[in-house]
Design a protein around this nucleic acid. Structure first.
Lengths: 215, 215
DNA sequence: GACACCATACCAACTGGTTGGTATGGTTAG
DNA sequence: CTAACCATACCAACCAGTTGGTATGGTGTC
């Protein structure tokens, strides 16, 4: 019948399985046998698409980037017209998605980079590009918001965007340690408070509740 | 001449080696052979003192707690008499110690918990106790500072102390990804700014430069 | 004080299972 | 036919943990 519809390509299945397995067990503890089993694929298929475990990790990090990019691009807050509202929308959205089991909402590259930063340069670099690439996207809105609402502030949009990522990554660690997503949400709440201070130091009550103004 | 001086006990050497090796390679990727070599100890000696690799990890987490507790208890900022100054002193101190190579200043338990949170309950718990125990110490000063300077604020000392830990842990991740300690320092600077807002929203310029008032 | 006795500390070689990776052969689409 | 794709069987290196044994020092007994 149809040519390329219906069945997920094997490579894609392996990458999706990698996101899930590595996020729960870590990179080093993930065995290729288990990964292949989880993807419903044989080892021969795996090594047809990836030349090594390291190659898989690099590909998984890039796959993670494209999955998350698409996820955030299509998130509802993206429709807001005001850049500052998009910034707050982003933070609120990050808080909202802290639901379900931990490996489902924590960050692949944040997990992996802790294991490999000192031992595997190529994976480390892929993780760096993923984290900093995402931060750069957030920084765009922050930059616009800053220009409009806090043009004289000393902090840079890049630095604030990275701080936001740091809080989120750190919140994941607390959540993993306590096995509790709520502790992560609390940290994001503090982060939001900080943003409110930065953008509206004198009049922060007003901006507390932002609404989605669709379109 | 003296009886028990001079030589470090083997168990202690293994634990110290564990702090260093695990922080650079992660828990799963650390082999006992390598660990023993790094400690200058044989495998037999290792298994005399620890019943398994897991047992080592739990002991290492506790060892980490006592090492860091002592480290922060003796830090200069602890001598400040005002609790709020100790809080800022703590944050500034955390920024100051971001020096040297990454495995030398990053957190053992923050690294380990990412690998084991979903697969090894006993190590996870030991990491939790280490992180949350440290946060509880910081929370004491925050609580005192809050009572004195911001008694009507809605946030709790515990929640703020945990947020501080989240920022620091997240900053480590960014630093590892970029292989650059400065990026972590920038995040801690944002954190400090947040604390200034929380404790002195209207008059933040004044408190910018705190000095050590010895004794 | 000398000897038997024993516990703790440590060592080097070994083992059985696991792991990342390979060799080879079959199947399907163009 | 050819080349991409995938399955099965297999391997050498590696790893956590074991084994059997030695070194050292403390304690009780006579």
């Amino acid at each position: 019948m149809k040519k390329s519809a219906a069945k997920t390509p094997v490579k894609h299945k392996i990458l999706d399985a990698a996101l899930s397995v590595i996020r729960s067990k870590g990179y080093a503890a993930t065995t290729l046998d288990e990964l292949c089993a989880s993807a419903g694929v044989t080892k021969g298929a795996f090594f047809h698409h990836f030349k090594s475990k390291e190659d898989l990790a690099v590909s998984a990090a890039r796959h993670w980037s494209s999955v998350t990019n698409e996820f955030f691009e299509n998130a509802p807050y993206r429709r807001l017209s005001d850049p500052l509202e998009r910034v707050f929308g982003y933070v609120d959205f990050r808080k909202e998605i802290l639901r379900g089991k931990l490996p489902e909402f924590t960050c692949l590259v944040g997990t992996m980079v802790q294991e490999v930063f000192d031992t595997n340069p190529s994976i480390r670099k892929a993780c760096q590009e993923s984290i900093f690439g995402h931060a750069a996207e957030v920084a765009k809105d922050i930059q616009l918001a800053k220009k409009r609402y806090a043009p004289d502030s000393k902090w840079t949009a890049e630095s604030l965007a990275l701080h936001i990522q740091a809080v989120i990554q750190g919140a994941f660690i607390l959540a993993k340690a306590k096995q509790d997503a709520d502790i992560a949400a609390e940290s994001v709440t503090h982060l939001r408070q900080y943003l409110e201070f930065l953008f509206e130091p004198s009049n922060l009550k007003k901006r507390r509740k932002l609404k989605l103004t669709a379109r």
